[in-house]
């Protein structure tokens, strides 16, 4: 988990690529993605996807490979009030299935253990309880109008 905006943004970076990353390759990548984006049809839907922080890097990369532009909003929520990330994606017609596939591949449900106090014990004895976290939640909203300039 992260405790400051800086940590959040550094979680977006791939540690393996950290050293060799520089602005010129970023700019190159951006123009390539811009080309991919312009090949897609008109944006018809706004997709809100809530995912776990652990899955963010893989999910973002996979979505950008589809030529989509992704905006991240840090968020919290669900049962444990954990940190999550909400992605906003403008979606052209006919790409819903591809995006759902990508999210399905990159955002796994996983079992984690949390410690809960054992009830009835004279002292607070922690007991590990398995919980299922993760997966993704998708909202698709119809857009009346889309503009970019």
């Amino acid at each position: 988990m992260f405790h400051s905006p800086a940590e959040f943004y550094s979680a977006l970076e791939d540690p393996a690529e950290g050293s060799k990353k520089n602005t010129s390759t970023d700019a190159l990548q951006s123009s390539r993605q811009a080309d991919a984006g312009s090949r897609l049809g008109a944006i018809r839907y706004l997709l809100g996807v809530v995912i776990q922080l652990q899955d963010l890097r893989r999910a973002t990369r996979a979505l950008e490979n589809l030529g989509l532009t992704v905006t991240h909003l840090p968020s919290t929520g669900a049962f444990l009030g954990r940190r999550s990330v909400t992605l906003l994606i403008g979606l052209p017609d006919g790409m819903q299935a591809a995006v759902i596939d990508v999210i399905h591949e990159t955002c796994h449900q996983r079992v984690e253990y949390i410690s809960t106090p054992l009830e009835g014990a004279p002292m607070p004895i922690p007991l590990s309880t398995p919980i299922t976290v993760g997966g993704a939640t998708l909202f698709t909203l119809q857009i009346e109008r889309y503009e970019e300039f």
């Binding site: 977006l12 993605q33 532009t69 991240h72 992605l87």
Partner: peptide, 8 residues
């Protein structure tokens, strides 16, 4: 506050 786009 958000981040994203080409250069994040």
């Amino acid at each position: 506050a958000s981040s994203g786009g080409f250069l994040r």
